[in-house]
Design a protein around this nucleic acid. Structure first.
Lengths: 203, 203
DNA sequence: CACCCTAGCTTGACATTGACAAGATGGCGA
DNA sequence: TCGCCATCTTGTCAATGTCAAGCTAGGGTG
């Protein structure tokens, strides 16, 4: 048969299969454009099978968000060595893993208080806070700088994804993001150029 | 009865009533936490009445988005006299009219190609583009500045609304927004302080 | 003033959905 | 070999979006 198994019972890894089906469905029609029953159909199982693993739809989306934030934190941590690249990594994650991203920042879709979600979210936040820290022109501006950096990255990412930016904004989003970061924080940090790693130079 | 009329037929302004009910419902449980039938119940009409005016759920949300973008454009235009206040107006609109905002930037919820949506959206975009223009350190940075300003405003707004910012970020969002704008674009524009109106100082 | 025409609403129906309860199955440990 | 229980299925229910068809009243027409 060559097939990766299709027994009626004890599917084996149904949980993963459903999550993957959800991600694909989200990619096709957004985080609300599908039903649990449709995922079950795609996975070739009965209509109530998904509920066993996730309780309800919110439970499934909570699993997606948790996984997403974990991957997000990993991506940010990998880029953290070069502070000027963290913002770009933020954008790239959203582009590469759009379905995850579309769930993650929609708190009403899942259970925000879920422990696995919270810990991964915190891990991602830590990278952002640390990075922004080294971009700040002085301790009294730390908080403002952090929120500004975060907002810039998040704002550009979501605007790009939603297609709300003016038509003139075409081309390579990563390149545009890089010039934004250089423009804004280059002036701020007082001339220290991207490429020079300023991590740890303060604090 | 003192009641503003409740005839069975020819309600009179049902369209408006349904939109208002939708806005309230969105405020209570997000843009997806309610049903057309529930709105009909709240309005005291039959379950299919809303469909007459809006076609379907997407039609209703399209009407909300169109109205929202129109109000948004008005708000931005009112603030446009002082360039440094446009970003704050962006935020304030979202805070004051959250239900509108939550629909507006979720294109999958409504018909983006609707003419009334598009024209209002364009009007809002124009204000943002013009404002950012006068913040740019030079013509070669116009596009980057525009997108940066837009992203900063939008990012901070949506992060604030979603509650994704670190707990340390409390207090008055408008004040924080103002210091962000001053910090980022103050350095950029080369020392011209907020308060001094630079509109028109460049082309 | 009688008529009717149609915008505005209602009634009825249908497939689909999320959620729950109860039953079936089969791999694994004792 | 046997029983247990995690995993999945089957059956069911109320709620929903959407469509089709019917009803009603109020303004325009004669």
């Amino acid at each position: 048969m060559g097939n990766i198994s299709q027994p009626s019972y004890h599917h084996g890894n149904l949980r993963r299969v459903i999550i993957d089906a959800a991600l694909q469905a989200i990619g096709e029609s957004g985080p609300a454009g599908w039903s649990l029953r449709e995922l079950a159909r795609r996975a070739g199982v009965s209509h109530a099978a998904p509920a066993y693993h996730f309780g309800d739809k919110q439970g499934l989306l909570t699993a997606v968000a948790a996984e997403g934030f974990a991957m997000f934190a990993d991506a940010l941590e990998s880029a953290a060595a070069d502070v000027w690249e963290v913002g770009v990594a933020y954008l790239r994650f959203a582009l590469d893993h759009r379905p995850y991203f579309e769930v993650m920042f929609r708190p009403e879709l899942y259970r925000v208080d879920d422990p696995s979600v919270q810990s991964a979210h915190q891990r991602a936040a830590d990278v952002l806070i640390t990075s922004a820290h080294s971009l700040s022109p002085g301790p009294e501006h730390d908080r403002t700088t952090t929120v500004a950096a975060w907002s810039l990255a998040h704002g550009f990412t979501t605007l790009w994804l939603s297609g709300a930016l003016p038509e003139s904004t075409d081309g390579d989003p990563e390149a545009l993001a890089r010039s934004m970061i250089r423009l804004v924080f280059g002036a701020l940090a007082g001339g220290s150029a991207p490429g020079e790693d300023r991590t740890g130079s303060r604090r």
